[in-house]
């Protein structure tokens, strides 16, 4: 008993659903260019059950026109809602265009680039277009994809894209550097050239040696003026030492007194030492 009852109700529901459902018929889609004569441009028939296999292309000066007759149970009737809905699957933007439907169920909608939001005009993929027909009462509403729209845009015509509205979200990372740090050349090159510079010293000394440079009179000089020569040569070496200290650790106020002291010593001892050198020259020993 219960089984038959539920079966009955099931049947009733399915009958009711089958009995009243919204759909459309005699639907045509036309794309007309501005200036082209009547009948020019593409014209396609739309079917409520399967989407159009061809892509519909809408150019900058074209008008897309969809005509249909809304039906309830195969009878032409005016629905409360008859929309052509475009939705971009990548951005999620959706826009519905309302069919102007007359009392006899005949409806019309026209589209040009001007009606479309910017997201559709810049969409890279075809935009699915569906027809939505529905009304009050228990009749089943209709919604199906009927065709796919591609926007053909003249790339030379700049698009007036509105400025992107601010939304609170994480922003791009920034790592700004005004001027990169100076870079040194590869160490191997530096070492080769430093080596060449350092090698110049032994080469210089070697060349002097072959020319007969020597320090044979050192004993003679120290014998004649030991203090002066030791102090003079020592003070000049010390001056170089002061430069070294200044380079590594001393500041100017430590350097200057030391340099002054060593300079006075060099001046005083130098006059004596150089007199001795002059004496040797006069003796013909140089």
């Amino acid at each position: 008993m219960r089984f038959s009852h539920s079966l009955l109700s099931c049947l009733l529901v399915s009958v009711a659903q089958a009995a009243s459902a919204w759909s459309f018929e005699d639907a045509t889609l036309a794309v007309q260019s501005k200036g082209a004569g009547v009948g020019a441009g593409t014209k396609e028939k739309l079917s409520p059950s399967s989407p159009l296999s061809k892509l519909v292309s809408l150019g900058g000066s074209d008008t897309l026109k969809v005509l249909l007759t809304a039906t309830e149970d195969q009878k032409a009737k005016r629905p409360h809602q008859a929309f052509l809905t475009l939705s971009d699957p990548t951005t999620g933007v959706e826009e519905s265009f309302v069919f102007m439907v007359k009392d006899n169920g005949k409806g019309k909608v026209e589209l040009t680039h001007k009606d479309l939001p910017i997201q559709f005009l810049t969409a890279s993929k075809p935009i699915p277009a569906s027809i939505v027909i529905g009304s009050f009462g228990s009749s089943q509403p209709y919604k199906n994809q009927v065709f796919e729209l591609t926007i053909a845009r003249d790339p030379n015509v700049p698009l007036a894209a509105p400025e992107k509205a601010e939304r609170y979200a994480a922003a791009e990372e920034i790592h700004h550097i005004f001027k990169a740090d100076p870079k040194s050349p590869p160490k191997i090159i530096t070492l080769v050239f430093s080596g060449a510079v350092v090698a110049a010293l032994p080469i210089l000394l070697g060349v002097w040696a072959t020319l007969g440079a020597n320090a044979n009179h050192l004993g003679k000089a120290l014998g004649k003026a030991p203090m002066s020569h030791a102090l003079f040569f020592g003070s000049i070496a010390a001056m170089e030492g002061i430069f070294f200290m200044y380079y590594t650790s001393w500041n100017l106020f430590q350097t200057l007194p030391a340099a002054a002291l060593v300079g006075v010593v060099a001046f005083l001892s130098g006059s004596r030492a150089l007199s001795e050198v002059q004496q040797r020259r006069l003796d013909g020993l140089r």
Partner: peptide
């Protein structure tokens, strides 16, 4: 590291100056 040839140049000059001084003062 890029400054090493210049720094070694300075100290080689210093050493060369001292050597020259010794030779000039004491060479027979």
């Amino acid at each position: 590291s890029g400054a090493w040839p210049w720094i070694s140049g300075i100290w080689v000059t210093v050493a060369g100056w001292l050597a020259f001084l010794a030779v000039w003062l004491y060479s027979a």
